[in-house]
Simulated assay, not measured.
Amino acid sequence: MAQAPHPYFAVWATDRADALERRTRVREEHRRRLRDAHECGVRVLHGGPTLEAQDQHMNGTLLIVQAATLQAVQQFIEGDPYVREGVYDSVVIRPWAWGLGRPPA
């Protein structure tokens, strides 16, 4: 199977336990960067915070990113305000094969 010219990646980030104040403080900067991701050579197709089941507080991030390489996604994430401010405890980036619900090209 040939690789797509612009593969997709799932980014799953989990916040540190004490990160809510930092997350809230830089959230607008983070969201601006996601909207302007093309300037970094990636395209964020879907994204949003993950939530605590009991109280719905933000506790992480899930992104679907389109990019030429895994390295491009890694560089983009490394420059994120949440990373810079120490919001995330962990970040996992995986190549992702979009199956159901894929938007039209």
Rank of each mutant, 00 (worst) to 15 (best):
L63A: 03
E52Y: 07
R32V: 06
R23D: 03
Q54Y: 12
L34I: 08
A37D: 09
A19D: 06
E28M: 12
L20R: 15
E52M: 10
R27C: 01
E21S: 10
G60A: 05
E21R: 11
R27M: 02
D15M: 01
M58W: 13
I64E: 03
A53T: 14
D36F: 00
D15F: 01
E28N: 12
H57N: 13
G47H: 09
L63T: 05
L34C: 04
E39I: 07
D36L: 14
L51W: 10
E29M: 11
Q56G: 04
D18W: 02
L62D: 09
Q54D: 15
P49Y: 09
A37K: 05
R43C: 07
T50Q: 07
R32M: 09
R22A: 15
A19M: 02
R16T: 07
R43P: 00
V42Y: 11
T24C: 05
D55P: 07
Q56I: 03
L20S: 12
L62C: 14
L62T: 13
E28T: 14
R32E: 14
R31G: 04
G48W: 07
D55F: 09
L51T: 12
E28Y: 11
H57P: 00
Q56H: 14
L34Y: 01
H30W: 08
N59Y: 04
Q54T: 15
R27K: 08
P49H: 12
D15S: 00
D15Q: 00
G47P: 01
C40A: 15
L20P: 02
V65F: 00
R35E: 14
T61N: 10
G60P: 01
E52G: 07
G47S: 06
G60T: 07
R22P: 00
H57M: 15
L34V: 04
G60I: 01
D18C: 01
H38I: 05
I64S: 00
V44P: 06
R22Q: 14
D55H: 15
G41P: 04
A53V: 14
T61P: 02
T61V: 07
D15R: 02
L34E: 06
R27V: 05
E52A: 15
V42F: 11
H57F: 08
E39R: 14
Q54A: 14
T50K: 06
R33Y: 09
V65W: 02
A17S: 15
R16S: 03
E29P: 01
D36V: 03
M58K: 10
G48P: 03
A37T: 02
A19K: 08
A37S: 15
D18I: 04
I64W: 09
T50D: 04
T50C: 01
V42E: 05
L34M: 11
H57V: 02
L63N: 06
T61K: 08
L20H: 15
P49V: 12
G41R: 09
R25D: 10
E52L: 11
V65Q: 03
V44D: 05
C40I: 02
R35T: 06
G41C: 06
R31C: 04
L20K: 11
A17F: 11
V65H: 03
A19C: 01
T61Q: 10
G47V: 07
P49N: 10
A19R: 04
N59S: 13
H38T: 10
